[in-house]
């Protein structure tokens, strides 16, 4: 328990530092920068939402010439294939996330809790798919998958998505386990807990925030994947990004806007649902600086 307490202590210190700072007034330039930053982050989302309800919105009109539900009506009609695309996206992203959890949790533990020869090489191997773009790997992999008859179907796309998704899970779990003290497990074992109990009662609760964050990342990597799905799915696996790309390149701003809104929603919902895991010091993002 001492590590946890230490953690809390640290947080207390940090807040006290804040408190001394906050006794002063925030300077105007900082406030201005704050406002600009908020605007910059939100601004591109505004026209997407507006376009989804717009019709005849031409230069130089600041508001649409007409408000219309035609984009939404089209998308929610059976013709659009939206339902199919969403189910395809989920049927890929969910298995990718689950597989990544099963594979990534032990791997993360290995990288964080053990010292072994070749560890540095394994770390780099795990990190490499994050840095080497998908298109570089998939053009070579395509021929292999063709021969394994994995192309043009969900299974192949799931396998392909694992390449960029799995490393995120491993990295998140490595950073989670790095903060986890395996002594707890040993203590629980000496107190008579069996392996299963140790895992469900001690390990799992401690690493759950990490799993949630890792799963969120993995899901989003798969959810937004375009080029891997296009090449491996060969047009037969139509996910939401493919549908969106179709309408963006066809210049249908209204339909593209509505699809954009739908595209953002799961991430937003998950983010709000898991906000408590992400907020505070447990960092999604501290990982890269860990390895």
């Amino acid at each position: 328990m001492h590590t946890l307490r230490e953690g809390r202590l640290k947080t207390d210190m940090t807040t006290s530092v804040h408190r001394t700072q906050s006794s002063r007034q925030t300077p105007a330039p900082v406030l201005l920068a704050f406002a600009l930053m908020i605007i910059w982050l939100v601004l591109p989302l505004v026209p997407i939402v507006v376009w989804s309800f717009a019709k005849r919105w031409f230069f130089p009109d600041l508001v649409p010439g007409e408000w219309s539900l035609q984009a939404w009506q089209y998308l929610f009609s059976p013709v659009s294939g939206l339902g199919k695309a969403i189910s395809a996206s989920l049927a890929i992203a969910i298995p990718v996330t689950l597989l990544s959890c099963c594979i990534g949790i032990p791997a993360g533990r290995a990288l964080a809790c053990y010292n072994f020869r070749g560890k540095r090489a394994v770390q780099l191997l795990v990190l490499a798919p994050v840095l080497v773009p998908g298109i570089a790997v998939i053009t070579g992999l395509h021929g292999i998958m063709l021969n394994l008859e994995l192309n043009n179907q969900l299974a192949g796309v799931i396998v392909a998505h694992l390449i960029p998704a799995l490393p995120y899970m491993i990295l998140v779990m490595a950073s989670t386990f790095a903060r986890f003290d395996t002594e707890f497990e040993a203590q629980a074992r000496t107190l008579g807990a069996n392996t299963f109990q140790v895992f469900t009662r001690v390990t799992l609760p401690a690493i759950l925030p990490g799993i949630v964050i890792g799963a969120l990342f993995t899901f989003l990597v798969s959810w937004s994947q375009y080029i891997l799905t296009l090449i491996v799915g060969g047009g037969r696996v139509v996910t939401l990004p493919l549908l969106l790309f179709n309408f963006v390149s066809a210049g249908r701003n209204d339909v593209a806007g509505a699809l954009g809104v739908i595209f953002i929603l799961p991430g937003l919902i998950i983010l709000i649902a898991v906000a408590r895991f992400i907020s505070g010091r447990s960092g999604i993002a501290e990982l890269p600086s860990r390895l």
């Binding site: 982050l41 591109p44 989302l45 937004s224 937003l268 983010l271």
Partner: peptide
């Protein structure tokens, strides 16, 4: 964090509109 969850494709659409 919200921005982190938004696909690049959607961001691109928004930037064009702006």
């Amino acid at each position: 964090q919200l921005n982190l969850t938004i696909p690049h494709l959607v961001g691109a659409v928004g930037i064009v509109y702006l």
